[in-house]
Design a protein around this nucleic acid. Sequence first.
DNA 1: CGGCATTTTGAAAGCTGTCAAACCCTGTGG
DNA 2: CCACAGGGTTTGACAGCTTTCAAAATGCCG
Lengths: 269, 269
Amino acid sequence: MIQISSGRDRLACTAARAAAQTGSPVNLQPPPPTEDDVSAVQPCGGCDVRAHSFCSALRAVELERLADMAERLSLKAGEALLRREERAAHVFNITGGLLRVSRRLDDGRRQVVGFLGKGDFLGFGATGTYGFDAEAVTAASVCRFDRLRFAALMEASPTMERRLLCMASDEIREGQEQQLLLGRRTAEERIACFLLNIAKRQRRLGAGEGTVTLPMGRADIADHLGLTPETVSRTLTSLKVEGVIRLEPAAAVRLLQPRQLEALAAGHG
Amino acid sequence: MIQISSGRDRLACTAARAAAQTGSPVNLQPPPPTEDDVSAVQPCGGCDVRAHSFCSALRAVELERLADMAERLSLKAGEALLRREERAAHVFNITGGLLRVSRRLDDGRRQVVGFLGKGDFLGFGATGTYGFDAEAVTAASVCRFDRLRFAALMEASPTMERRLLCMASDEIREGQEQQLLLGRRTAEERIACFLLNIAKRQRRLGAGEGTVTLPMGRADIADHLGLTPETVSRTLTSLKVEGVIRLEPAAAVRLLQPRQLEALAAGHG
DNA sequence: CGGCATTTTGAAAGCTGTCAAACCCTGTGG
DNA sequence: CCACAGGGTTTGACAGCTTTCAAAATGCCG
C-alpha cells in the first residue's frame, strides 16, 4: 500500500533541506504523479510556519541526524496513513498533498478533526497508540521518523521541546475554536469560517489573491463542520447566489466579497 | 474582586505540598465558605493525576522555588479569573472549586471548552494573550504564578517540559473527542457522554459509586454540549423516565444503569 | 464518448431551538 | 420555624434549521 523510499532522503522542513545541502548532494526524486499539482495549491493544516520554527530550533548537526532517520512515504488518494488504536511507533511530517485526521463512531459517523498539508507534523502527542485516523485526501508524500529516535533527538535539543509545546498550544487553541464553531455556529457561519481559514492558509503558503482551492470533497468538508454534504452544497450555492463567492472549475472558489464573508463568520449577517 | 493572600503560600500540587513541609511551617488558611463542600465532590477538569505527574517532575529545590512564587486567589461563584485577549502574565493551578473555560461570539453565544477542578492547570499555552475566558462556577481557590518565572523554572527542569507536553497532548485528545461529540452526536448521546465523563473524574478524585454531582448549572452544561438548557433538562428527564438515572437533591445524579448509559454514549441506543 | 462518482437540487420529516409559563429549590427575612 | 422572594429548572407548544431520502445534473477519468 504505502510506498517507502530509501532511508536517507531529503527532509521535509525547509530549514532542514537548506542545512542538508551543505552535506552530500541530496537526491531529489521526481515527486509522484499528481503530488506536485496538489501541493502547489495545498492549503490546509497546521501550516509550514510551524514546521519552519520547529526546524529552526535545531542545529545543523541535529538536522543531519534528523535527515538520517527519515523515511519517505507516498500515499495514494484515500489511502490510510495510520489508524486509531494503532501502536504509535512513528512521527510524521507531511511534505506534500493533503491528509485528513479524523475520529469515528462505531456506526460510521465521522468527525474530521483537521486537514494537514505541507509542513505539518503528525503524531507527536500520541502516547502508546494513536488517538485518531489519518488518511490521504489527495495523493500525498510524508516523511516518517522513528518515534523513539525522534524523542531522543528532542531531548538533546532544549529549544526543541519548547517548539513542540508551542505547536501543541496552537493546536489546542484551534481545537477550541473548532468547538465553538461546532457547538454554536450556524451552517452558513461554519462555511464562511471554513473558507476564510482555508484562504488564510493558502495565503501563508503563497497562494494568490481571493481564490481558494478545496482539494477535499463535500463529504470531508461536511464531516469537518458537523454538517451533511447536502447542507454544505446548499450553503455554498446560497453564498454563490448572494454574490459572496463564485464556484469555479477545479474545486476553486473565488471570494468575491471577503468582507461579507468575514461578517458572516463573525456572526453578524 | 479577586482576593489575593500573601505571596508565600502553600502550593497547589500534592507533591509540592509534601516537599514544602520539610521547609517552613505552611500556613493553611481555612478555605472560603462553600469551597470545601464543592471541592469535596469536585469532578471535572484535566484531573489531579496530571497535576501530580507535573509536580513529581520537579526536584525539591524547584518545588521550593515554585512555592515561593505562588499567590493564592479566592474567587466567588460567577467571578472571572481571566478574559480572552488579556495579557497572559500568569499561570494558574486550581486548588478547589470549579472553573469553566469558554469562548464566546460577539452576540453572546458561548462554548464552554472545559471545566477545571482541583489540581488542574490553566494558562500554559497562552502566548502573549489568553485565548479564552475563565470564570468560577462555584466559589474557587487558585494558585497564581508569574508566567516568566514559571517558564524559567521549567527550562531548568528537563523533564518538566515533557510533562507539559503530555498534558497538552491529553488536552488535544480531549478536544478532538469533544469535537466528535459536538459535530456528530445527538443530544441524548452528548448527555450520556457528559455524565460518564463527570463520573469518571469524580471516581478519580475519590468520589463514591454511581452518584455524580453537577455543580454547574444547566446553562453551563448546555454551552458545553452545544445544546440549550431546555434540551439538557428535557434529555435528563427523559433519561430519568427511562430509569437510566435518578435526579436527586443537591445537583446529584444517580446512575442507575451505567451500562445503558455507556451504550447510549457509544451510539447504540 | 460513456460510465461512474460526486455534487446539486427537491420535498418532507425530525430534532433541537425558541418563546413562554409553571414549578421547584434555595436562601432570606420575619 | 415558616412565609416569601428570586433564580434556576422543568414543561409545553410551536417554529426552524438541518437532515433525510431521492433524483437530476455535473464533472472527471478511462
